[in-house]
Amino acid sequence: MDISRVKARTKIAGTVMLFLTAFIWGIAFVPQSAAMKYIEPFTFNAARFCLAGVVLLPVRNILRYISYKSGNAEFKKGGSNITEINEFDSKVLKPDLKQINKNSIKGGVLGGLFLFIAGSMQQYGMQFTTAGKAGFITALYIVIIPVIGFFCGKKNGVNIWVATAVSLVGMYLLCIKESLSLGKGDFYIFLSSIAFSMQILSVERFSNNSDALLFSIIEFITAGILSIPCMFIFENPSFSSTCTVWKEIAFLGIFSGGAAYTCQIVGQRYVKAAAASMIMSFEAVFALLGGAVILSERMIVKEILGCVFVFAAIIIAQYSDK
């Protein structure tokens, strides 16, 4: 077996998953925008995060069952006796519960805490600022991550810093349509960007030796549970208004939540956090494309140029990571 080829293939797979994450997150801006007209931030987050966690529960159990049956079938095919099958059960499933799941729980709780903070700050801040400025400020996590890494003793190559500068230019061209100023909403969006950076870093810290689906489930349930008391304390949740946007909540919970964040966790096993954040920032491009296709919005020349800069930044970030 050529280990270098295996590593190259897994990195490609991880990159594809992160692009898929960016695509889903970008498209999700359409239903998210629609939902905010009828539902408040904490109520919205509580519904979609809890839904994401609940949806992934049966998925994980089904996949574990299929994996176990496949393992048993392989043992039986080779003429293994019941002792070997029991040994498979004890040595494969139980160590997962004791070791891998322990890592998944730690990472899930920590990631869920940062996801709750990030989602809450972002949804609250968007009430006081424009979508363009919010998108630009949120995208600052591509700068914050390598800066945090630098102060933690991690060294980034020149390509990451160049890519960061290029991506910032691209994000500016994509999102900013007015003079840049920091208001109340901008401040909360900036705080959400820091929290998103910590969520990405927590995924990198715990994803290598964890159960990706269990990680996601715990992350979403944690964020959802933390949102519930805030929903009742700071808002006036209405069952009827929540039912009005059930399609948007379903899409965000199942796809933007369950599917995309699981792809993020799996993808970050093989792609460094700084480069991963660069890839995931491509969601801004997909958001523009989604708006053009679904909402019949048109991109001006400046926005198209911004797409080119962002894509160039992604290539630069990946280039020297051999």
Rank of each mutant, 00 (worst) to 15 (best):
N72M: 14
N72G: 11
A73K: 12
A73Y: 06
A73H: 06
E74P: 00
K76L: 01
K76E: 00
K77S: 06
G79A: 03
S80M: 11
S80W: 06
N81P: 03
T83N: 13
I85R: 12
I85N: 01
F88P: 04
F88Q: 06
S90I: 12
K91D: 12
V92L: 09
V92K: 13
L93P: 00
L93C: 02
K94E: 11
K94L: 15
P95N: 08
P95W: 11
D96S: 11
D96K: 13
L97M: 15
Q99W: 12
Q99D: 14
Q99P: 00
Q99L: 14
N101I: 07
N101D: 14
K102G: 15
N103Q: 12
S104T: 07
S104E: 06
I105C: 06
I105M: 12
K106D: 01
K106R: 14
K106Y: 14
G107V: 06
G108L: 09
L110N: 00
L110Q: 03
G111F: 13
G112T: 10
G112R: 09
L113N: 01
F114V: 06
F114E: 02
L115Q: 03
F116S: 02
F116R: 03
F116P: 00
I117Q: 00
I117K: 00
I117T: 09
A118M: 03
S120M: 08
S120F: 04
M121A: 12
Q122V: 12
Q123P: 08
Y124I: 15
M126C: 08
M126F: 09
M126H: 05
Q127S: 11
F128I: 08
F128V: 08
T129K: 09
T129M: 09
T130H: 05
G132E: 04
G132Y: 05
A134P: 05
A134Q: 05
G135D: 04
F136C: 03
F136R: 03
F136E: 01
I137E: 04
A139I: 08
A139S: 15
L140V: 07
Y141F: 15
Y141Q: 04
I142Y: 03
V143L: 13
I144A: 05
I144R: 05
I145A: 01
I148N: 07
F150N: 04
F150W: 13
F150V: 09
F150D: 01
F150P: 04
F150I: 09
F151R: 11
F151T: 14
C152I: 10
C152V: 07
G153L: 10
K154A: 09
K154W: 02
N156I: 07
V158N: 10
V158E: 09
N159L: 10
N159P: 08
I160G: 03
I160S: 05
V162F: 13
V162S: 08
A163M: 07
A163I: 05
A163E: 01
T164R: 08
T164I: 10
T164D: 05
A165I: 15
A165K: 00
S167V: 14
S167L: 13
V169I: 15
G170L: 10
M171A: 14
M171I: 09
Y172H: 11
Y172I: 11
K177M: 09
S179R: 12
L180W: 05
L180G: 02
L180N: 01
L180I: 15
S181K: 13
S181V: 13
S181W: 04
L182P: 00
L182M: 15
G185P: 03
